[in-house]
Each structure stands twice: as structure tokens, then as C-alpha cells.
């Protein structure tokens, strides 16, 4: 499957995922190299979020998932995460009734969390540490969600639509934070915003009908308007920012 000689932090083979008996991921196989950003792309409802959740065991899955050389497909979610996976879920999923500080404290997996990095990236959160996360703006909640993942020493980050529903200014901030993170940890990114993908992604994996239809260097896809139209159902070109964010994926949470 892999077209490069780099080692892979994550390999996924013949992954199937189910939610309440309904098949949402079908025979998906791909690799995530141990550096840079791999973008998982596809039209709405194609199973990107479900693929991420299957990797974590948040939904029932079968198949072979190998993280840093270790099979994890039979491990429960918390064990997978403890092996060094940071997860930034779709819709952020911060704990609204907990303060910002509590949200972050809960996420700390080691005795020496990387608080300095978080404070540097998101100074806003330091000021708002006592505020209930439910009262934050969408952008601030995304900061909390990212910070929860970046606090820990991870082998891999799974980041699901981090810019969804955010204002252009916040999108830029989030992108910068992810760029910074990508220097030290490989990222598997689900994203709809082509502009963001262009800035972040090194490689892309495209899903269609629950299966992988394209794997390769990001540029190979992004410089081919016809493919973008066919795989993602959007026009590339000047109107990057208008990439449709109102249509959320039709995947039950």
C-alpha cells in the first residue's frame, strides 16, 4: 500500500466499522508515515470520522490496526490512547460543565505534561482557566480540544475537522498550531477546507463509498482540479474559503 520507503507510525488494513449494526467503514486500508501530516479526505458522509473512531475503538471495529509496530485493534479505547495517541474529535467535545483548567487536567496522561507548549500556543486559555468550557466560543473550545491533545507526549495525533464552523481568523490560528505540532508528531487529519489542507497536508488518503480510492502526495491531488471535483465534490480554485462547512458529515456520533 505504502508508496514511500518511510516507516509508518500507523497502518490500517481491512478496517470495518459498525455503529449499532450498521456498516459505516468498509474494508479501509492505508498508512500514516511517522512524520508530517496525512490528510484523510472524501465527500461528506463517506466515513472519515468513523474511520478515526474505529482506529480508537470508539465504535465496534474489525481489521488490523498497527500503531508503532503494535497491534491495537483489540485494545479498548483508553489503552490505545495510552500508547500515545492524541485525539481532537469532530465538534471538539470539551466538557462543558468543567472549567478550562479541569478539561486540561483531565487530559494529562503523564506527570510531566507539556504545559509550556500549550500556554505558548494558546495564551487565551491561561487567562480563561477558571471559565466553564461550555461558555467558551467555538474557537476557544477548539483551542481547549487541541490543547488536551498537545499536552501529552504523543506518537500520533488524530485530528478530526479542526476548523469546522470557525471564523477565518480562528482557522488561521488553528492551522498555525497544527503546523507547529506537526514538527514533532505525525498527524492524521480529517479536513474539508482545501486551503487548510494545502497548508498542512503532505500526503492524502481519499475515501469514497467507505473505501480508499486514492493515496499519494498531497500536491498530486491538489493540483488536479478534475480529481478534486470527482473525489471531494468541490471545486478547487479561488473560492477555497467557501468550501462547504455547513454540511456536516452524516455519521451518528
Amino acid at each position: 500500500m505504502s508508496t514511500t520507503s518511510r516507516t509508518n507510525i500507523l497502518t490500517v488494513r481491512n478496517l470495518y466499522g459498525r455503529i449499532e449494526g450498521q456498516q459505516v467503514v468498509e474494508d479501509v486500508s492505508f498508512d500514516v508515515p511517522d512524520t508530517g501530516v496525512t490528510a484523510l479526505l472524501g465527500r461528506n458522509g463517506v466515513g472519515k470520522t468513523s474511520t478515526i473512531k474505529s482506529i480508537l475503538g470508539l465504535i465496534d471495529r474489525t481489521g488490523a490496526i498497527t500503531l508503532a509496530g503494535r497491534r491495537v485493534d483489540r485494545l479498548p479505547t483508553h489503552k490505545v490512547v495510552q500508547l500515545g495517541v492524541g485525539y481532537v474529535p469532530e465538534d471538539r467535545e470539551v466538557f462543558g460543565k468543567l472549567s478550562v483548567a479541569e478539561n486540561l487536567k483531565l487530559a494529562e496522561r503523564s506527570a510531566h505534561p507539556n504545559r509550556a507548549l500549550v500556554e505558548e500556543l494558546f495564551p487565551d486559555l491561561v487567562q480563561r482557566h477558571a471559565q466553564l468550557a461550555g461558555t467558551l466560543s467555538g474557537g476557544q473550545q477548539q483551542m481547549v480540544s487541541l490543547a488536551r491533545a498537545l499536552l501529552n507526549q504523543n506518537r500520533l495525533l488524530l485530528v478530526d475537522e479542526p476548523t469546522k464552523g470557525l471564523s477565518p481568523k480562528i482557522v488561521t490560528e488553528v492551522t498555525q498550531a497544527l503546523l507547529a505540532a506537526a514538527k514533532t508528531v505525525p498527524i492524521l487529519l480529517v479536513e474539508q477546507n482545501l486551503q487548510v489542507i494545502r497548508q498542512l497536508a503532505d500526503r492524502v488518503v481519499v475515501l469514497s463509498g467507505g473505501r480508499v480510492v486514492f493515496t499519494g502526495e498531497a500536491a498530486e491531488l491538489l493540483d488536479d482540479p478534475e480529481r478534486i471535483q470527482r473525489y471531494l465534490g468541490v471545486h478547487s480554485g479561488a473560492d477555497h474559503s467557501s468550501t462547504d462547512h455547513s454540511n456536516t458529515e452524516q455519521v451518528p456520533a
Binding site: 470508539l58 474529535p89 468543567l98
Partner: peptide
Amino acid sequence: TRYGLIVRAGVENRLMVTALGIDV
């Protein structure tokens, strides 16, 4: 307490607690 924190978070969203690496 940390377990208290886990319980409060778990009441809100149990799956996300496990996704933070906590054995709920």
C-alpha cells in the same frame, strides 16, 4: 479529587473520557 473529575466528566461524555486515555 481526580476521580471526582473523571466522574463529572464521565457524566457529561463518557466516551470522550476514555478517548483521553482514562479507564473509566
